[in-house]
Design a protein around this nucleic acid. Structure first.
Length: 588
RNA sequence: CGGGGCGUGGCGCAGUCUGGCAGCGCGCCUGCUUUGGGAGCAGGAAGCCGGAGGUUCAAAUCCUCUCGCCCCGACCA
């Protein structure tokens, strides 16, 4: 490819207000352009890198027995109604009608389609297990796309689906994906960790997320350096500091004027926050969001409520902070609220509360609290479970050492779905005794654009991108420095080399523009192709072309006649180096 | 959905408060010079100032409505 006719320019300046380095560099280097909120065009450079990522995805999926196929982007609403997700997922799913007024949706994911295919294609236990996948467009109308390709609305995902006889088979394919995913990310040059995660709208029994750790990430992970425990904060457990055992004391009113928050309350009464109980009021969407109900979460004052845990505990599709009106209707007083004397609402109590006697809690009366509140004696605790947020410094639930938190981007996820989707679609197979059995399903996703952005985030320097060879748009960036004689020789040599290197199987970007050396070097640094070859009067007089690896200082003169061979060897060497870095952690 | 911000040649911005010829830098085109880390000079093209309505002799500027984008939060595979 000749840069003079390449579609997509490099920019000296990026648009203002960009906070992710991957976003800035992918824009500046001419990889992507934004069309609308969360909608991006992939220009030729990005398309090439994505193609290489997809090749890796295919190789690793095929290695574990995957069969590639393609499913539609537009689905009849019917299949989503059957699985129950038409109502459950809310406005994130784009819905529209066709000319016959039939309801259609844009695909967010493809469990429903696979389950529907199972009805027609899977009849016998002899056909199982199966692993199918495709690389397809998804649309999710996310309320807040951000950070370039890190979070978009339309994106391409490799999603695979496994079908098995039973839970054991599902577990085997799940583990195969676990290893394949690590191979994929390492081969793209991206270090990741796997963490336990919430199953969210997918449902099912077990899920892992593959996380690239970076401050630009929007998920918070809870990690234990001592024992290796790791989880998304949404589900992370921790060991709660136990309270001193005490005999329950009689309930006692105490005036606390103006003490509306836990901080004000503990300062006013001169007690630690752990000796208080706070009530958090939320409105929950139940029955797939069709019904709203007040949920009162009670937790010790030194901890915060984890909304994901709480939503799972009450079976809510969503939670939002309750309006003051709803709180007052339940007989509570904002700022001085407590579970004592509530008239409506589902009470959920964190499991730290029953073990903590004689707490200070609100009296549901302005400027008044109670001392010595005890769950069970003073109010019905309702549901008791873990609804607390894990944070830096909390003790690890596994080993007791302090936890730390880190930000990360979710580049992949794997779910054990169970029989839910097959059951909803009416898919069954006959086992070896002729009995009808449900199909066990798993689903597994990797967003290719987000993966590209994370690789860019990981591999860049102050001058631009530094692609790993495995996902670089080209192998070689060939720069002739031409001008007057005798350098014209360099231009001619570069033209010859361009064809010669391509014939040798290398993908070459030739900077044949009439630009000064500085401009060409700056663009080469920005685009970040691993092998840079400079051909000039100076290099020719030294015996050939100058070869340099992006991100490294050393350069070498290589004779033109052995350049194809030398560059092929360097390319192989760089790819081997990436392969050698592959590390697959123990499943857990 | 709540809070904040921004829409002015392709990109980055000034001008808006206080209404009066639409500007600057980069990029782009032509020519000459220059040629190993974002060149110099000369000439040139390119903007209904996001859109609609209003106020005014006069609107990028003031008012109303609206659309789009960015950031924070809520939310979210």
């Amino acid at each position: 490819m000749r840069l003079s006719h390449h579609f997509g320019l490099t920019l000296r300046e990026a648009p203002a207000g960009i906070e992710a380095e991957s976003h800035r560099l992918l824009l500046r280097a001419g990889f992507i352009r934004q069309l609308g909120q969360g909608l991006y065009s992939y220009l030729p450079l990005a398309h090439r890198s994505i193609t290489r990522i997809e090749d890796i995805l295919r190789e690793e999926m095929n290695r574990i027995g995957g069969q590639e196929m393609t499913m539609p982007v537009v689905h009849p609403a019917e299949i989503w109604r059957r699985s129950g997700r038409y109502d459950a997922v809310g406005p994130e799913m784009a819905r529209f009608k066709d000319r016959k007024n039939s309801d259609l949706v844009l695909a967010m994911t493809h469990e429903e389609v696979v389950a529907d295919l199972c009805r027609s294609e899977i009849r016998s236990h002899r056909q199982l297990p199966q692993l199918v996948y495709h690389i397809q467009t998804k649309f999710r109308d996310d309320p807040r796309p951000r950070a370039g390709l890190i979070r978009v609305r339309e994106f391409t995902m490799k999603d695979s689906y496994t079908l098995d006889h039973d839970a054991g088979g599902l577990e085997r394919q799940y583990r195969a994906h676990y290893e394949a995913y690590f191979r994929i990310f390492w081969r793209c040059g991206l270090p990741t960790i796997a963490v336990g995660s919430d199953v969210g709208m997918m449902g099912g029994s077990q899920a892992h997320e593959f996380m690239y750790l970076t401050p630009v990430g929007e998920d918070t992970l809870v990690l234990c350096d001592a024992c290796g425990y790791s989880a998304n904060r949404q589900i992370a457990r921790f060991a709660k500091t136990p309270a001193e055992p005490e005999a329950p004391l009689p309930l006692e009113r105490v005036d606390t004027p103006g003490a509306r928050t836990i901080a004000e309350l503990s300062a006013f009464l001169e007690i630690p926050a752990a000796r208080t109980a706070k009530a958090v009021f939320l409105t929950a969407g139940l029955d797939g969001g069709a019904r709203e109900e007040l949920v009162v979460a009670i937790i010790r004052g030194d901890m915060d409520v984890n909304e994901t845990k709480l939503a799972n505990a009450v079976g809510a599709s969503w939670l939002r902070p309750a309006e003051d009106e709803a709180i007052l209707n339940a007989g509570a007083t904002p700022g001085y609220a407590s579970p004592i004397g509530l008239t409506t609402g589902t009470v959920v109590v964190d499991d730290s509360i029953p073990a903590s006697p004689n707490l200070v809690a609100g009296a549901n009366e302005r400027d008044v609290h109670f001392r010595n509140v005890n769950a069970g004696r003073d109010y019905d605790p309702g549901l008791v479970t873990d609804i607390a947020v894990a944070d830096d410094g909390h003790a690890c639930a596994e080993c007791g050492e302090p936890l730390r938190t880190s930000r990360g981007v979710e580049v992949g996820n794997i779910f054990q779905l169970g029989t839910r989707y097959g059951d909803a679609a009416g898919a069954r197979f006959l086992d070896d005794e002729g009995a009808e059995r449900p199909i066990w399903m798993g689903s597994y996703g990797i967003g290719s654009g987000r993966l590209l952005a994370c690789v860019a985030e990981e591999h860049h320097d102050e001058n631009g991108l530094v692609w790993p060879m495995s996902v670089s748009p080209y192998d070689v960036h060939l720069i002739p420095l031409t001008g007057r004689a005798p350098e014209d020789e360099a231009g001619a040599a570069a033209e010859r080399l361009h064809d010669e290197l391509q014939d040798a199987g290398l993908e070459v970007l030739l900077d044949d523009r009439d630009e000064r050396a500085g401009v060409k070097f700056a663009d080469a640094d920005l685009i970040g192709i691993p092998l840079r070859v400079v051909i000039s009067g100076r290099s020719l007089s030294r015996g050939g072309a100058e070869v340099r690896i992006r991100g490294e200082d050393a350069s070498a003169i290589v004779p033109l006649e052995s350049l194809a061979e030398a560059l092929t060897a360097r390319r192989t060497e760089l790819l081997d180096r990436i392969e050698e870095a592959v590390r697959i952690p123990e499943f857990g």
